[in-house]
Design a protein around this nucleic acid. Structure first.
Length: 291
DNA sequence: AAGTCGTGGTT
DNA sequence: TAACCAAGACT
């Protein structure tokens, strides 16, 4: 079973959310920023920050001119702040080597830090109308159900997943791009992970999962990531102190966020290694480039 | 290639 | 309420 492109493209034309990075006046830079922010982060939390960034840094060169600390503060609590640092670096490369214009070529995009298989193709497709398989978690789920009749996608396999989606794309780049956006939107609004709204699905009649009686997911159990008590939580708490403080702080201030000194010190050290924190000559701690 | 990397809303 | 989930990348 396959997916009828026209059916889904038509559904998208009438049901797509009005998201700012889809507006006709958005630039490739705006699309890139949105895609990085949206990695593992919900639309609702990204939208206000994206607007701030577009107003403050309308070009790659304007972001590149900011300090890392400014960028990390503006990133706020979107999570995974290494994304902000990589985007800052990518902006510098785009400004210096690509005429301050986000590249439209997948391989060129892949060479930039923080841009992987999904983001490179999403930017090429959504910003420039190229024809490329755009595979994110939504698309994987929609294909698993509508095409393969499974309750959910199994473990990701980049090559196999992209081949699956490639086979669905119409030959015309413009329609392929719209189908890619539609597949993602369907996964986000209708074919959702926990409680799919099948009654509202434009693919209801042709969906292999529906036809098979909606069998439960039968693949290997998904690995659920813990958060409470992990280094990830502690790193987040440490960084939050520096984000909320004007200048450098003493280590004693950071020691307040977590009682276990061993884990605390290990996390602070890893933040220094990652370049998310710097130590001043006086031995104080600060966001990078702000002292 | 399995683990790691933030954060907060939803069920 | 604990678990799940959200437009992944990197090592």
């Amino acid at each position: 079973m396959s997916i009828d492109a026209d059916t889904l493209i038509d559904w998208f034309a009438t049901h797509a959310r009005d998201l700012p990075w889809r507006h006709p006046e958005r630039t490739g830079w705006g699309v890139l920023v949105s895609e990085i922010m949206l990695q593992q982060t919900p639309v609702a939390r990204v939208e206000p920050i994206w607007h701030e960034w577009m107003a403050r840094w309308p070009l790659p060169s304007s972001l590149a001119a900011a300090s890392q600390g400014e960028v990390l503060r503006a990133w706020g609590k979107l999570g995974y702040p290494r994304r902000a640092l990589r985007l800052h670096t990518a902006a510098g490369v785009i400004a210096a080597e690509h005429g301050d214009v986000v590249p439209s070529d997948v391989d060129t995009l892949l060479a930039l830090p923080g841009i992987g298989a999904y983001t490179a193709r999403a930017v090429a497709t959504f910003a420039y109308g190229k024809r490329a398989p755009v595979v994110d978690t939504n698309v994987r789920r929609v294909v698993a159900r509508a095409v393969h009749g499974a309750g959910d996608a199994g473990p990701p396999s980049n090559t196999r997943d992209m081949n699956d989606v490639e086979a669905l794309l119409p030959p015309e780049a413009d329609r392929a791009a719209r189908l890619s956006a539609a597949l993602m939107e369907l996964g986000a609004l209708i074919c959702t992970a926990r409680t799919p709204r099948c009654a509202d699905c434009p693919l209801y009649d042709e969906c292999a999962w529906q036809r098979a009686g909606r069998p439960a997911y039968a693949g290997p159990p998904k690995v659920v990531q813990k958060f409470a008590g992990t280094d990830r939580q502690v790193r987040g708490l440490l960084l939050d102190v520096l984000r909320g403080t004007e200048g450098p702080v003493e280590k004693a201030r950071l020691d307040l966020v977590w009682s276990q000194s061993g884990q605390r010190d290990r996390c602070l050290d890893s933040l220094l290694v990652d370049g998310l924190v710097e130590q001043t000559a006086a031995g104080l701690f600060a966001l990078p480039g702000e002292h």
